[in-house]
Design a protein around this nucleic acid. Structure first.
Length: 267
DNA sequence: TCTGACCTGCGA
DNA sequence: TCGCAGGTCAGA
C-alpha cells in the first residue's frame, strides 16, 4: 500500500540508479494505455535524459528534459530493475529501456495505479500540503482543522488537505497523537492540535527511515521488503495489547476502511 | 459528506 | 468460494 514513505523510499532508490539514464524506448501495456493516455505519446521520451526524481504526496515524478512522466502506484504498484524479478509479469504495465542497457519495469497487479505524461512540471491542483515539506506548518494545519467538521481519520486520509497519508499511517499517527480516529477536526483543543502536528511528520519520517511498510505487494526498487511493519503500534494489531497501556487494540471500520486504535490511550 | 465500485491475489 | 486488503473517484 504505497503511501508517502513507500513512494519516498522508491524515489531515493531510483535516484542513484537511474539519474542520467537516457531513454531508448518505453512500452506501455494495452491496459495502461487504455486507462490513461496514448502509448504513442510516450515515444517522445526516447532520447530524453532523466535529470531528477521528485515526489509530491503519493505521486512520483520523473524529470526528463522538459517531459514529466508521473506515476501513481495505487495499491500495488512497484518498480523492478528486471523483468525476471517480477512475480506477476502479466501485470507489468510499463517497460522502460535505456541506452546504457539498464531497464526499469512498472508492475501493478491490481491496476489502481496510473501513469500520466506532462509537458511541464505538474502542479497537482487540489492536492494538499506535503507533510514532509517546509509548507507544512502548525498554522496551516490548525487552519485546516478549524475549517472542517469531519472525523480525524478521514481528514488525514483526504489528499486535498494533506498529501501522502493513507490507511496505515493515519492509524499510526492518531495513536502517536493519542487522539481517537472519531474525534472531529474542529473540536480539537490547541494541545491536541499540537500533538497531531508533531505526530504526522514524525511517523512518516520514521517510516521513510525504515524503507516503508510492507504488507503483501510493496517492495523497494532493490526487491526487498520495507522494515516499518515491525514498528507499527496499532495497524493490523487487533486484539493484541497496546504497547502503552496493555488494553487490546480495537479494529473498526471508518469510511469503508479498517481502522485500528486503543480506546484507552486515544481520546 | 459518505458509500460503493474498481481490481486481483491470497487465505480462510 | 468468498471476503478482505485499500487509493481514488463518481455518484448519491
Amino acid at each position: 500500500m504505497p503511501e508517502l514513505p513507500e513512494v519516498e523510499t522508491i524515489r531515493r532508490q531510483l535516484l542513484p540508479l537511474y539519474r542520467g539514464e537516457i531513454f531508448r524506448e518505453i512500452r506501455l501495456s494495452a491496459l495502461a494505455a487504455l486507462q490513461n493516455c496514448r502509448a504513442e505519446d510516450f515515444q517522445r521520451l526516447a532520447g530524453k535524459r532523466i535529470d531528477d526524481f521528485h515526489r509530491r504526496g503519493k505521486f512520483l515524478i520523473f524529470e526528463c528534459q522538459g517531459i514529466y512522466p508521473v506515476f501513481h502506484l495505487g495499491m500495488s504498484g512497484i518498480f523492478l530493475k528486471s523483468k525476471a524479478e517480477s512475480l506477476y509479469p502479466q501485470h507489468i504495465h510499463a517497460e522502460m529501456r535505456f541506452k546504457s542497457g539498464k531497464e526499469l519495469f512498472f508492475q501493478d497487479m491490481r491496476r489502481f495505479g496510473n501513469i500520466r505524461l506532462y509537458s511541464e512540471f505538474p502542479q497537482f491542483p487540489g492536492l494538499g500540503i506535503d507533510p514532509l515539506g517546509a509548507e507544512f506548518t502548525a498554522g496551516r494545519l490548525n487552519a485546516l482543522l478549524a475549517a472542517k467538521k469531519m472525523n480525524l481519520k478521514q481528514f488525514l486520509m483526504d489528499q486535498r488537505y494533506i498529501a501522502g497519508i493513507g490507511n496505515i499511517y493515519a492509524s499510526e499517527i492518531l495513536f502517536r497523537a493519542r487522539l481517537s480516529p472519531r474525534r472531529k477536526t474542529h473540536e480539537l483543543k490547541s494541545r491536541e492540535r499540537a500533538a497531531l502536528f508533531q505526530a504526522i511528520p514524525a511517523i512518516l519520517a520514521s517510516a521513510v527511515e525504515n524503507f516503508g511498510t510492507t504488507y503483501s505487494a510493496y517492495r523497494t526498487v532493490t526487491g526487498e521488503s520495507g522494515e516499518n511493519q515491525h514498528f507499527l503500534q496499532v495497524y493490523q494489531r487487533e486484539g493484541e495489547p497496546c504497547h502503552r497501556c496493555g488494553r487490546a487494540i480495537i479494529k473498526t471500520v471508518m469510511g469503508s476502511r479498517s481502522t485500528f486504535y486503543c480506546e484507552k490511550c486515544q481520546r
